[in-house]
Design a protein around this nucleic acid. Structure first.
Length: 111
DNA sequence: AACATGACCATTA
DNA sequence: GTAATGGCCATGT
């Protein structure tokens, strides 16, 4: 594969794919796990440009524990649906208990 | 090359 | 608890 023409994307996707079912990760957490501390924005951007269905993008939410407002409400609802389907419960405020479902990063650099 | 935009986050008041 | 500010950087025009 490409060495590093867009290392950000590769790392981000790689990390997102490692998120186990029934757990969620924040953009910042993914960014940090991907070796891009502070670049949470790029994570969201990468996911927005995501085309591959083999990447569990729905397991990535914002730091507030809510689903980021997207241009298409359908996708936003679908994300919630997919998460609930994996056992993740949303509260009345539509927020996920990060304290409970937050994915614990196994290692800073996994290959 | 420069400007504007964006599925964000942490800090500060 | 909310509101505002700065920062970070890839993508498209």
């Amino acid at each position: 594969m490409t060495l590093e023409p867009t290392r950000t994307y590769a790392h981000i996707y790689n990390v997102v794919r490692q998120i186990p079912s029934g757990q969620v990760a924040t953009y910042g957490q993914v960014a940090h796990a991907a070796g891009l501390p502070g670049q949470a924005r790029q994570v969201g951007y990468a996911l927005h440009a995501l085309l591959e269905a083999d990447t569990p993008w729905h397991r990535v939410i914002n730091a507030k524990g809510t689903i980021s407002p997207r241009a298409e409400p359908e996708q936003e609802q679908r994300q919630r649906e997919l998460l609930e389907r994996e056992g993740v419960v949303f509260d009345a405020q539509g927020r996920v208990d990060l304290k409970t479902y937050r994915w614990d990063v196994p290692l800073p650099d996994v290959c």
